[in-house]
Simulated scan of single mutants.
Amino acid sequence: PNRFFPDVLANPRLKIAHPKHLMEPLIEKGEVSVAPSDIGLVGLGPFMFDSYEPGSIIRLRHFDRYFEYDSEANRLPYLDGIDYIITPDPVAMDIAFRTGRLDGTARGFGHYLTEERRRGYLESLGDDVFFTQMEGGTFRLAFNVLKPGPWQDARVRRAIALWIDKKAAIPAVLGGFGWTSPDISPNNPYKDKKFVVWPKFDLASLEEKRAEAKRLMEEAGYASGFTMGYLTRARQVLGGQFLKDQLAGLGIDLQLQIVDEGEWNRARVSLDYDTQSGSLSVLPIPEGTEGVYGRFSKSPNSYSKHEDTEVDRYYKTLKDATTYDRRVQVWRDLQKYLFVDQTYIIPIAEMTYVVAYRTYVKGLVIPPEDGHTFTDFAAVWLDKGEK
């Protein structure tokens, strides 16, 4: 048993919308693929699902039996409803926001603002716009060590980790907003700094690290390099191109295998590819990370594809830890094992998510991390009398 299971379950990425009284009869009839959308998206939130026009708009409307009240005994939510305009193209979203069609920009990879787009907002809107920042996901390289190739050698994986110029990824891949290991995010004052995702390692200069990378490649018998594949989503091709350019200096010809979302969702849980970026962000609860760091046979969604039972042992020790300090130490040891000793995963840079809102949007609660949180907007109102 995991005593932190309630914390893990509270993660907003684990969306539970399967009421038994509606789902069970359908499943018993053989409709085993029934989804929450098939039964009207039943939930406990402040807004009800109203309508969905594919490719256009999703409408939510005020739920008059929502359970929360404000400090003056007014029932929440304040808003009559929310219209989510579907804008796959970030440029189209920027135009809609700057022309007044949207009150806020979207949360989602590709839609979060870059430095350049943020400057454009300020130039055109001035004091009529404000910006929020959240800790985001990780730009990473994860190895499939179950697939034959030079990357099965831990020395090769370690050499790649040492060679990559992580700080260069911030402007090149993350739009200028982010930070790298071993830095602590400047955006989250509430995070317990003892539980930062990356312990402090690899503190040598880039020149020193690259010299060691070449030594390791030669020791492993790959001084002349090799060819390696990298699975990447079409909407994240900048990361793949960055890695391709970086690893060329180590003699590695990185072949980008760019796929659409359908193939991505199939391929990332398969053993078909040499390396990949991985999906989803790491959960803030250490005990909840086994799904992305653990063995492939237990979790095909793991970033790295491995069958290392030592990782199982670390997680069991972590779950059995009875003191806070012991949890911290085991968590740090596990990360060193994953990122340094074995280098199954290379965390390159952590994203900072930037979202814009019009200044008349009031009552927002901005999460310190993870853009999937604080999205009920129960206490939000629009004060359009104020610019």
Rank of each mutant, 00 (worst) to 15 (best):
residue 201 F to E: 07
residue 21 H to Q: 15
residue 259 V to W: 14
residue 299 S to F: 15
residue 32 V to P: 05
residue 186 P to T: 13
residue 86 I to F: 12
residue 195 F to T: 03
residue 310 E to G: 00
residue 156 V to Q: 11
residue 164 I to L: 15
residue 232 T to N: 04
residue 80 D to N: 10
residue 246 Q to F: 12
residue 323 T to K: 04
residue 119 R to C: 02
residue 289 T to Q: 15
residue 25 P to L: 11
residue 65 R to M: 08
residue 94 D to S: 03
residue 99 T to N: 09
residue 154 A to Q: 09
residue 111 H to G: 00
residue 241 Q to R: 15
residue 256 L to M: 04
residue 158 R to P: 04
residue 276 Q to P: 01
residue 343 T to I: 06
residue 285 I to R: 00
residue 219 E to D: 11
residue 188 N to S: 05
residue 358 R to Q: 12
residue 170 I to T: 06
residue 241 Q to I: 07
residue 134 M to C: 09
residue 215 R to N: 12
residue 59 R to M: 03
residue 365 V to A: 12
residue 146 L to S: 01
residue 88 P to W: 14
residue 236 Q to E: 14
residue 7 D to G: 00
residue 344 Y to D: 08
residue 276 Q to G: 06
residue 26 L to G: 00
residue 219 E to L: 11
residue 185 S to R: 06
residue 153 D to G: 08
residue 80 D to R: 06
residue 7 D to Y: 06
residue 365 V to K: 10
residue 11 N to I: 01
residue 40 G to H: 01
residue 67 F to W: 09
residue 101 R to H: 09
residue 277 S to M: 05
residue 382 L to Y: 14
residue 341 D to A: 10
residue 258 I to S: 03
residue 258 I to E: 10
residue 258 I to N: 06
residue 264 W to K: 07
residue 315 Y to W: 15
residue 162 L to N: 05
residue 238 L to A: 14
residue 377 F to I: 11
residue 225 G to W: 14
residue 347 P to C: 02
residue 37 S to M: 03
residue 82 I to Y: 01
residue 290 E to V: 04
residue 5 F to W: 14
residue 111 H to K: 01
residue 185 S to K: 05
residue 169 A to M: 08
residue 262 G to E: 10
residue 266 R to N: 11
residue 100 G to F: 12
residue 128 D to G: 06
residue 261 E to S: 13
residue 380 V to E: 08
residue 316 K to L: 07
residue 258 I to R: 02
residue 367 P to A: 12
residue 254 L to K: 13
residue 341 D to N: 14
residue 228 M to L: 15
residue 43 G to H: 04
residue 29 K to T: 09
residue 86 I to T: 02
residue 100 G to V: 08
residue 378 A to N: 10
residue 271 L to E: 09
residue 116 E to V: 09
residue 331 W to G: 04
residue 191 K to L: 13
residue 381 W to F: 15
residue 181 S to L: 05
residue 103 D to V: 01
residue 166 K to I: 12
residue 270 S to V: 11
residue 83 D to E: 13
residue 326 R to G: 12
residue 233 R to G: 15
residue 234 A to T: 12
residue 346 I to E: 12
residue 251 G to V: 12
residue 339 F to N: 00
residue 341 D to T: 15
residue 363 G to H: 14
residue 193 K to T: 06
residue 91 V to K: 13
residue 344 Y to R: 08
residue 153 D to K: 11
residue 19 P to D: 07
residue 142 A to R: 01
residue 160 I to M: 15
residue 238 L to R: 13
residue 267 A to N: 07
residue 326 R to F: 11
residue 201 F to I: 07
residue 57 I to F: 06
residue 232 T to Y: 01
residue 376 D to C: 07
residue 293 Y to E: 14
residue 227 T to K: 15
residue 264 W to T: 05
residue 372 H to S: 09
residue 250 L to F: 14
residue 265 N to V: 13
